[in-house]
């Protein structure tokens, strides 16, 4: 939509230009994060405490997994508004199945397997519907996922009547959700593994270039033999599966299945994280390492505001401003590069 007229740039200011290029090379986000951490470490003694750092990483890891799923969909030029609802859906469906199986007297291991399979299955189903509607019926991703968001959170509430589902096996809650592995919370370890898997898929398999091709230029992708529909559906299913896994991780930590997990707020945060991490809303670009960094960035900011007792309502305003500023800077940077 933007029209870049060839501009006759006056003599570029050497120093400023060189700085801009250096920043463009590393990316603004790591530098900002570094600066933020440095300032916090100097001004706020509690910030560098182990408990506080683990707290930041734990909330960042949840966000990073959901946002990396969102990234897959954004890369193919889509959107997923249903991720937050899928978190709630997998939590309630998984917990209901798990508690039901445990109550019927099967072994805890089997109950956990059944519950996880049910939660992941429900998530995958939503992803499949999203993907098929977008890829085959060519419905706008925004509207499809708006519809499935409404439907998924409806099912989650219907299943539980809004009451938390208890009765999960001990092995799932204390043995997994609240466990500490290698000195780290289990959720953090699992999230790192999941992010690693996405990174490997993106860098070392066909998935990375194929998804980028679909999002970058559908016609070109089709002509060069990329299975556009297949990859689009895979992106949506992958996104929903990552959201469903997050739902199960949260369920294990909390110890009950809840329809109030996730929600529209998590969806919005996942999109914000991806966008701050430089994932293009026009499709075709995005890296999972940056998304993880974006999640850490947002978690650090929110932690800093909590430590300095910024009102939680004012925090919303800050998040909004950061989001707009990130995209505006990105746009301005692109325009500058085009001109140079």
């Amino acid at each position: 939509m933007s029209v870049h007229l060839p501009s006759h740039h006056p003599q570029p200011q050497q120093g400023a230009e060189r700085l801009m290029l250096a920043v463009a090379g590393i990316g603004l986000l790591p530098l900002l994060l570094l600066a933020l951490v440095a300032v916090l470490a100097l001004t706020e003694p509690r910030f560098l405490g182990t408990a506080n750092l683990l707290n930041i990483l734990r909330s960042a890891s949840v966000l990073a997994v959901v946002a990396s799923g969102q990234m897959l969909v954004l890369i193919v030029g889509g959107f997923d508004l249903s991720v937050g609802a899928v978190v709630a859906l997998s939590s309630t469906v998984g917990a209901t199945a798990m508690a039901g199986a445990a109550a019927s007297g099967v072994s805890p291991a089997l109950a956990i397997t059944v519950g996880c399979a049910a939660g992941l299955g429900a998530g995958a189903l939503v992803g499949l519907v999203n993907g098929l509607c977008v890829a085959v019926l060519k419905v706008s991703p925004f509207m499809v996922t708006l519809g499935t968001m409404s439907a998924a959170s409806g099912v989650a509430l219907l299943l539980t009547n809004g009451i938390p589902v208890y009765g999960l096996p001990d092995g799932f809650v204390t043995g997994f959700g609240r466990a500490v592995w290698l000195g780290l919370p289990s959720a953090l370890v699992v999230s790192l593994i999941l992010l690693g898997v996405v990174a490997v898929l993106q860098r070392h398999t066909l998935a990375g270039p194929a998804l980028r091709a679909v999002g970058g230029n559908v016609q070109a992708a089709r002509v060069s033999g990329v299975a556009v529909r297949g990859w689009t559906v895979s992106a949506y299913v992958g996104c929903s599966l990552l959201a469903a896994l997050t739902g199960l991780l949260l369920t294990a930590r909390i110890g009950s299945g809840q329809a109030s997990l996730g929600g529209l707020n998590m969806t919005m945060e996942s999109i914000a994280t991806a966008v701050i991490a430089g994932v293009s809303l026009r499709g075709g670009a995005g890296r999972v390492e940056m998304v993880a960094l974006g999640a850490v960035f947002l978690a650090v900011i929110s932690n800093a505001m909590n430590l300095s007792r910024v009102d939680s309502k004012a925090q919303l305003v800050v998040l909004g401003v950061i989001l707009i500023a990130a995209v505006a800077l990105d746009e301005l940077g692109k325009r500058r590069r085009v001109r140079v």
Binding site: S2, L316, L319, G320, I322, L323, V327, E331
Partner: peptide, 21 residues
Amino acid sequence: LRVNPFVATLGMLNICLGLAS
């Protein structure tokens, strides 16, 4: 600023929510 309308109004959503509460 040519920010995508989705993001621009998403940011505004947050700002208004903060303001209202």
